[in-house]
Design a binder for these strands. Structure first.
Length: 392
DNA sequence: AAATAATTCAACCGCCACTGT
DNA sequence: GACAGTGGCGGTTGAATTATT
């Protein structure tokens, strides 16, 4: 895992490196990343430092599963913005663009949207075994009909009937086949062309062609080149490699290990921080006999309070898990009025090429004292209606 | 229990836009 | 205008973990 290229460390970060980076950024602030490795005493490239800070060390990063509201917002914003993950993440307090991107790629990209919603909702219900979860819908906001970005638009009612009267209820997934349903909901179906059958010998031959040395390059090539193994995903190929082909070159691998032993022995052993697991298997031996205190469920009554972090005790084996969840300052609440303001303002200012023309962020923040501010606080139009209408 | 498949997510890579010279 | 340095972003990878067979 650990690699050294041109003297710069790669791979997982150690606690020591994290400490150095955090210490440096807290003292000098973000930015000037090219100086960070040298001045912080890190043998890392600037990009690696920046990424580690933004995605992991930065305060207020929100951990844990995405809520129904967050997923809802991701879907809508993705419909609006495409793969502009940083922009989408900017509307999800505490979430990083990497998290959003990963979530999209692993949960949302291949599933029908109604299935996504159902899954997330079920997941939330399951997680809350101690008390029932009340899903808090983002507060519907009202906007002036005179708002420049809304001029001439017809406001479409949310077909799920999520009105002011019932928005605190769990979201009702629109039934399948409801052709009067939410149209924005429908366009994210998975690609039916994916070959889900067994890996054939022919494909194996493709990989094996040319002998062991070519296996690895073919493996990489296949992962990157869709023409190499049509309709096979990189994951298919990877798993096939791991289970069928990898073992065949064990002798070669052992040789390589032997050869590299000399080099490895000179390398300093470091304690790499393992990625945090999202879920635990009930059968994990080190969890046996341990009591897990579940998250405090967020309800209407306590929605203003910070979440209670998971408490797993002092066991060294799970201490790191606790550490990763320990920041109580995370904004776990609903989308804020400011965020909605930002979205609306951005929509109004979009031009044909406005997204790029205006820089990477089409959403310009509006200061409270700027003109037009008060226009936002008006009649009965809610953000969801507007976004839903707009993305049709 | 072992093998296999699927999932997760931190990290890397390459590209692009911007800025200064 | 050309070039280099930098910051930022999205696409992708791959090890580890979990789920399923």
């Amino acid at each position: 895992m650990e690699m050294v290229s041109l003297g710069v460390r790669k791979g997982g970060w150690t606690e020591e490196e994290d400490f150095l980076l955090k210490k440096y950024v807290e003292k000098h602030g973000e930015g000037k990343w090219h100086q960070v490795p040298h001045e912080a005493g890190l043998n890392r490239c600037r990009k690696s430092c920046r990424l580690r800070w933004l995605n992991y060390l930065r305060p207020n990063i929100k951990r844990g599963n995405f809520t129904v509201d967050e997923v809802d917002l991701i879907i809508r914003l993705h419909k609006l913005l495409g793969n502009r993950w940083s922009l989408i993440a900017g509307r999800l307090p505490g979430r990083t663009s990497n998290d959003v991107k990963n979530y999209w790629n692993t949960h949302l990209h291949k599933k029908p949207n109604d299935q996504i919603r159902e899954d997330v909702y079920k997941s939330e219900m399951t997680q809350s075994t101690m008390e029932k979860t009340k899903v808090i819908r983002p507060r519907p906001r009202t906007f002036s009909k005179n708002l420049h970005c809304l001029m001439g638009k017809t406001v479409i009612k949310d077909k799920t009937d999520q009105t002011k009267e019932n928005f605190s209820k769990p979201f009702q997934t629109p039934s399948l086949g409801d052709d009067d349903g939410i149209l924005w909901w429908d366009n994210m179906l998975s690609n039916p062309d994916i070959n889900i059958g067994m890996m054939t010998w022919t494909n194996e031959e493709v990989i094996m062609e040319g002998g062991v040395e070519k296996e690895k390059s073919a493996m990489q090539g296949a992962g990157r080149d869709p023409f190499r193994l049509p309709r096979r995903t990189s994951n298919d190929v990877k798993n096939y490699w791991n289970t069928h082909l990898h073992k065949k070159s064990n002798d070669q691998i052992r040789e390589d290990v032997q050869k590299s032993k000399m080099t490895q022995s000179t390398m300093e052993k470091t304690k790499v921080i393992r990625p945090r697991p999202r879920t635990f298997s009930k059968n994990l031996p080190w969890l046996m006999g341990n009591t897990i205190i579940t998250d405090k469920t967020q309800t209407n009554e306590n929605s203003s309070e910070p979440f209670q972090t998971r408490s797993l005790g002092d066991d060294d084996r799970i201490l790191w898990w606790d550490n990763m969840l320990s920041d109580p300052d995370v904004n776990r609440g609903m989308i804020t009025w400011i965020n909605e303001e930002v979205i609306m303002e951005g929509r109004g200012k979009q031009e044909k090429s406005g997204m790029q023309e205006a820089g990477r962020d089409p959403f310009k923040c509006v200061e409270e004292d700027q003109s037009g501010w008060s226009d936002f606080f008006m009649d009965h139009m809610d953000l969801w209606d507007i976004l839903g209408d707009d993305v049709k």
